[in-house]
Design a protein around this nucleic acid. Structure first.
Length: 482
RNA sequence: GCCCCCAUCGUCCAGCGGCCCAGGACGCCGGCCUUUCAAGCCGGUAACACGGGUUCGAAUCCCGUUGGGGGCGCCA
């Protein structure tokens, strides 16, 4: 049997790290088994669904490299893969269930249900639907509907009864139907609920494994019951624990960024995000933290997925991002960084500037954790006027010997025969010796004078990249500002 | 309230009855290196929630307590 898995994001919000991880696990599972990964759109919530969110989801699925074999935008044998386009099918199924009595019309209004739910809670009874419309005879029900009375359709859960299944990450489950109420499958406005649409799609699309969040664990009997009623093949379930915020509560907006987009914009690269997400709840079985994608595919097993809720830790993500940044080929690093640099400068770089950037890039690559750190670090190479970081200035440009240092540096640098790192270093070290200054004392002022900050790429290389003219001008400029 | 899930360093993960006075990674602290910041290297800090069993032997199995999470919608 070929493995067929899916994710069914609802376009009611940006693609966030939680679904990202679920998508990744589905993808890894499919790839590991040579199966099919499907993406469909759960867009039945017309109120909250937007095209912007839909685009964001697909864009970031691709950004993470989780290409899908079948589904929305790419098509496939079960197209279209969006639920709003399959309403007829849901009605067809509902009618069939109604006909055999596996489902029944419910005439309770939302207001009534709400009131009863409140009362039940207050009295300590289970707040689920009490099943009162289940006893209405089919003829009476038909008459009432014929008379125009609004009705939703509920699934008649067998009682007494229980649903047992084996969850691939949690083990054997057995849920008594006393805890599964007669749930709505079709709203009174004719739209399908999540339970119906999702289960019908899973059956119709031949889904073999459902890997999803633990929040759906207690709804699983509903889906199994529906699947059986539809005559579908049994589906294997695997429920992933949820992602938490730093305070141990469910991850949400108030914890800061949960959107994958936000991390991308902050300078996280997809390789790092994927690696980090993969290990947030799954272990390849060895004490390794940085794992190549191919190895993940090779080793991924649902049985190795952790049952513990996991706290999303941006600090570790950033560390990992640094690891991946350093592993990048310089050209690749440059390619990913250039758009950010040009955006920062608000102009493109010419060939000569590109060459200077390429010269300095490896040195920046070594120290970056985020792609977004690069532009500010190299900005001084491409602007006419630099802005000084005031903290840096206050910290290093206030010592008594500063004027002498700047003057000596200008003297030395203006006469070196060749403007190369080695010659620059030699000249400046000679200067340090003459002035009897430590590198820290004598070189930091030059760094601030030239780059505007006490933090920059290595000084000698930076000067070479800047060029003699601009270097001398910056030194003079700083001297004038003292 | 009821039902379900979970429980190893601050965090993520390893451990699936003896190899564990518990291992790796992030973080944190210290050192080395050093032209800044990083990186790198070396070292350190820190956990089996609690109580009962089972067993020659328990982080590992069972029960309970506590704690955390999820669910109980004509949301998904």
């Amino acid at each position: 049997m070929t493995v067929r898995v899916r994710i069914a994001p609802s376009p009611t919000g940006y693609f966030h790290v939680g679904i990202g991880r679920t998508a990744l696990y589905n993808w890894l599972f499919a790839r590991h088994h040579g199966g099919t990964f499907i993406v469909r759109s759960d867009d039945t919530d017309a109120e909250r669904s937007t095209q912007e969110y839909q685009d964001d989801i697909l864009e970031h699925l691709r950004w993470l490299g989780l290409e899908w074999d079948e589904g929305i935008e790419v098509g496939g044998p079960h197209a279209p893969y969006r639920q709003t386009l399959r309403l007829e099918r849901y009605h067809e199924v509902t009618d069939a269930l109604l006909a055999v009595g596996t489902a029944y019309p419910c005439f309770c209004t939302p207001a009534e249900l709400d009131e009863r739910r409140r009362a039940a809670m207050a009295e300590g009874r289970p707040p689920g639907y009490d099943g009162r419309c289940r006893s209405i005879s089919p003829t009476t029900a038909l008459a009432r509907r014929g008379a125009g009375e609004a009705a939703s359709v509920r699934f008649a859960v067998p009682r007494p009864g229980a649903t047992a299944f084996r969850d691939e990450v949690r083990g054997e489950m057995d849920i008594d139907h006393a805890n599964v109420d007669d749930f709505v499958i079709l709203r009174s406005d004719g739209s399908p609920t999540y339970h119906l649409a999702s289960s019908v799609d899973d059956v119709d699309f031949g889904i073999t494994h459902v890997v999803r969040g633990e929040d759906l664990l207690s709804s699983t009997p509903k889906h199994i019951l529906l699947t059986e009623a539809l005559g579908g093949q049994p589906i294997v379930y695997a429920h992933l624990s949820l992602l938490m915020g730093p305070d141990g509560r469910k991850l949400s907006k108030r914890h800061g960024d949960t959107a994958i987009r936000a991390y991308r914009e902050r300078g996280i690269i997809p390789e790092a995000m994927v690696n980090y997400l993969a290990l947030l709840g799954w272990s390849p079985g060895v004490d390794e933290t940085v794992v190549a994608l191919a190895d993940m595919v090779e080793r991924f097993e649902l049985s190795d997925v952790s049952r513990n809720p996991a706290i999303f830790d941006p600090a570790k993500l950033e560390w990992m991002n640094g690891v991946y940044l350093r592993e990048l080929a310089v050209d690749d690093f440059l390619a990913r960084t250039l758009p950010l640099i040009e955006a920062d400068l608000e102009r493109g770089l010419d060939d000569e500037e590109l060459a200077r950037l390429a010269f300095i890039a490896p040195l920046v690559q070594e120290r970056a954790k985020l792609l977004t750190e690069v532009a500010p670090q190299v900005r001084f190479l491409f602007v006419d006027e630099i802005g000084y970081d005031e903290d840096s200035w206050a910290k290093v440009m206030t010592a008594d010997e500063i004027p002498a240092v700047l003057a000596a540096a200008m003297d030395r640098l203006s006469v070196i025969p060749e403007w190369k790192t080695a010659a620059i270093e030699e000249a400046l070290r000679a200067m340090l010796e003459t002035l009897e200054l430590s590198p820290r004392k004598g070189l930091q002022p030059l760094r601030v004078a030239v780059s505007g900050s006490s933090v920059s790429p290595p000084l000698f290389e930076s000067l070479e990249a800047l060029g003699r003219g601009p270097t001398l001008a910056r030194l003079a400029g700083a001297a004038a500002r003292l």
